[in-house]
Simulated assay, not measured.
Amino acid sequence: MPRVLVAGGTGFLGRAFVRGLHRRGAQVAVLTRNPAGAGRLGLPAEFVQGDVRRPGALASAMRGVDAAILSVQFPGYPVEAPARGRTFMEVDARGTAALVQAAVEAGARKLVYLSGVGADPGSARTWYRAKGLAEASVRDSGLDYVIVRPSWAYGPEDRSLNRFIALIRGIPLVFPQLGDGSGRITPIHVDDLADLVCEATLGSAGDGLTLEAGGPRVLSLDDVVRTAMAALGRRRAILHIPAGLAKLAAACAELLPGQVLSRDAVDFVTQEGVADSDPARRRFPAFCPRDLATGLAEYVSRT
């Protein structure tokens, strides 16, 4: 029975990975800053303490691990809080590099890194740059690896698309859409993504590859909203809020305590993210993501 550590296993994606690994018979450990709190999530896993911003103790947390899934995010993602060390560069880039080094020191065999469509160490966008640097750490580790670049993942426990659902339910007549709504994405249900990640972790079909993962259809952000409305049985006019106006509000929000909104976060949530999933489907023939309408219908009530 392989032992797999999931770094970021208490997050939205990580929880799906933990459950998928458990169903496949793996022994699962979750790296977390707060094992006692994580234990209340009811996940079928052992919880080990570790913090990617304190790399000294990570190797001991990795001891006895055959493979590690690296899927860490900072609290408040994607709104950064530099004073608290909650940034893409600190967590995604340097944190992942620390995990890679710990895995090497602990004798792990394989790494699976959750990156993102568009990752590029030379990008002007800090989140793409951080993911690209993290990918380089994984590739240079000397271990077997798979890099998965998902598009926008959604599901019953996510915060992003479910925020759209809440707005449709809570605001009459209109839906406030940041930007012009033309950004194209390929939404993927988190369970479909988890199936790919778990098979890549426990098998060898994806070793040495960088695989994009998205749903079967390219949708605009406005298409996503309309699909959510249809799932709810509600109709709203889409009111586009110019990105410049949203960034002006975000600049004011940056002065407030907490991680409310930021100008970079406006760019993050309106960016494109089209995944080419054909290589993943060729390597993993069972990988057949459901479309957004089907995925939403499974958990969104028409009330």
Rank of each mutant, 00 (worst) to 15 (best):
L202M: 09
D180H: 13
D222Y: 14
S151F: 10
T201P: 00
R184M: 11
I168A: 14
A246E: 01
G244P: 00
D180M: 09
V218L: 07
S151E: 00
P176M: 12
D207T: 04
I171K: 12
I185C: 11
G179Q: 12
G215Y: 03
G155Q: 05
W152V: 07
Y145W: 03
D158Q: 12
A250R: 07
R169I: 04
A136Y: 00
G132W: 02
S141E: 04
R163L: 14
G215M: 04
Q259K: 07
P187D: 03
F164Y: 07
P172G: 13
G181D: 14
L202Y: 08
F164D: 12
G233H: 06
P176N: 13
A136S: 07
H240Y: 03
R159N: 13
A253M: 09
V224M: 14
I147Q: 04
G170Y: 11
S262K: 12
S151K: 05
G258R: 10
G179H: 11
K247D: 00
V197C: 04
R139D: 11
I168L: 15
L255N: 09
T210D: 05
L232Y: 10
Q177L: 15
D140P: 01
V148A: 03
G142R: 03
I185H: 12
S262T: 00
S151T: 05
G233T: 03
P257Y: 13
Y154D: 02
D192T: 03
